[in-house]
Computed example of a mutant assay.
Amino acid sequence: MAGTDLYPVAGCKIYIGEIMATQIDDFIESDFITSPDQFTEIDGWTTMGVFGDTAALISTQLINRNRDIKQKGTTNAGSMQNVFAEITGDDGQVALIAASQGANKANYGFMVEFNDASGASGSVNSKAYFVGLVMNASPAGGAANTVRNLNATIEINSNVVRTAAT
């Protein structure tokens, strides 16, 4: 039966890219592919946060109908809250921490690579691209028998561009 394949989160990857300005029109895949070395993998990813558009609710109270009429408003791609095992010196974590500094107001390109390629020779995983602000990259502890973590929140400032697996 088509469409019943399930894919593990294990094997997915997240990358931070170059500084990217927001734009009026929705982004497309080619907006994110400007150089082969544009993205750096952020190593140690242990928890993938939620991301993708959610519409705001517009609610109008119509007195004569005794009913609220609801409409979809603007969309917001959300706050992606990720957890990483802290790996000192990892280029991706260093870039993430630098992007999170208070004086850094720049948006960055991000790429999430999923684990869903067919496995055939030349197959490619699906990807999601977006632009976002790194709001924090904060060290976090845990229980005695856990590693130190790095918690990072990315406020997504664009549409999410998805590509299909082949």
Rank of each mutant, 00 (worst) to 15 (best):
G49L: 01
G122C: 03
I63S: 10
I42V: 11
W45F: 02
M80N: 14
S126G: 11
G92C: 07
A21I: 09
T46I: 11
A99Q: 02
E113C: 01
L133C: 12
S138E: 13
E113F: 00
D90A: 14
A21Q: 15
Q101P: 03
I58S: 05
N107I: 04
T34A: 07
N136V: 03
T60F: 02
T46Y: 00
S121G: 05
S138L: 10
G52K: 11
A55R: 11
S121K: 13
N76S: 10
K70E: 09
V94M: 05
K105A: 06
L96Q: 10
E86L: 13
A56Y: 11
A137V: 02
N64V: 12
D91L: 13
E41R: 08
Q93V: 09
M135I: 12
A140D: 07
N64H: 05
T40K: 02
L57C: 09
Q101D: 06
T54Y: 04
I63P: 14
T40R: 02
D90P: 10
A95H: 00
M80R: 02
N125F: 06
A99D: 08
E41F: 10
R65P: 00
V134Y: 00
M135K: 14
A140N: 09
A55Y: 04
G89W: 07
K70W: 08
I33L: 15
K70A: 01
A128F: 01
N64A: 03
N136K: 15
G141D: 07
T47Q: 11
K72E: 03
N107V: 05
S79M: 14
M111V: 12
T40M: 00
T75R: 12
